[in-house]
Nucleic acid binder design. Structure first.
Length: 220
DNA sequence: GCGACAG
DNA sequence: ATCTTGTCGC
């Protein structure tokens, strides 16, 4: 798929903050997505003690979730890991991988937060806004917010609240297993996001999309 | 001022 | 995120 460069990649948090503040205004948290035929998962891996970033993308058909295409891209890591600025570290390589795809996905599930972020602009939002594709954030751990305990049965969820605002959902994708943190990335509402995450997660804790991307990102 | 802190 | 197999428990 064709990717258009929106901004140069900053090297420091001081340079990244104003970019984040500008782009966050473009995030859409209501449903603006077409019928989904292809869902993609994105994940990262690193080499040489983090000096090389490796992004992997897996495109699956929806709703049958069969692998249709995959792509990998490597590039030097140029931004440090700073909580709240993950996208500036990971997205450059992700865009390289997406550019290699012949199939343009209708929806992307990201490994990390969407608006469940201190400034409401997690990696799923940043990626979605940059390429104008619907995205959902599916994180394995909490960045900000708090929530009530939730029942152990699969499918249960509780709102994730931060500063009196619902920013996402804590979702049980497997009975008795640690939940995942779901939030809108771009052009997807929270309830729709929860629905897609459930439909992409029929068997394990994480969506099939991210599990495939995970496998590609590590299998060198 | 003191912790907490996606991957 | 990365270094890493088998093992314990439902």
């Amino acid at each position: 798929m064709k990717i258009h460069q929106r901004h140069a990649w900053p090297l420091t948090v001081e340079e990244a903050l104003p970019i984040q503040q500008e782009l966050r205004k473009e995030v859409i948290t209501s449903d603006q997505l077409e019928s989904v035929q292809y869902v993609a998962g994105v994940d990262m891996g690193f080499e040489d003690s983090f000096s090389i970033s490796r992004a992997a993308v897996a495109v699956l058909s929806f709703p049958d979730l069969e692998l249709k295409e995959q792509a990998i891209a490597k590039r030097p890591t140029t931004f440090p890991y700073v909580p709240g600025f993950l996208s500036f570290r990971e997205i450059p390589a992700v865009l390289d991988a997406l550019e290699k795809l012949a199939i343009a996905p209708d929806l992307i599930l990201c490994d990390g937060q969407g608006i469940a972020h201190p400034r409401r602009f997690g990696i799923a939002c940043h990626l979605g806004v940059l390429i104008d594709v619907p995205t959902i954030g599916v994180a394995k751990s909490l960045l900000v917010g708090k929530h009530e305990e939730l029942p152990l049965e699969r499918g249960n969820w509780q709102p994730l609240v931060h500063r009196h605002e619902t920013i996402g959902a804590v979702l049980r994708t497997r009975k008795g297993v640690k939940p995942v943190y779901v939030s809108s990335g771009h052009r997807v509402s929270l309830t729709t996001a929860i629905d897609y995450v459930m439909r992409c997660t029929p068997k394990y804790r994480l969506p099939e999309t991210t599990r495939w991307a995970d496998k590609l990102a590590s299998n060198r």
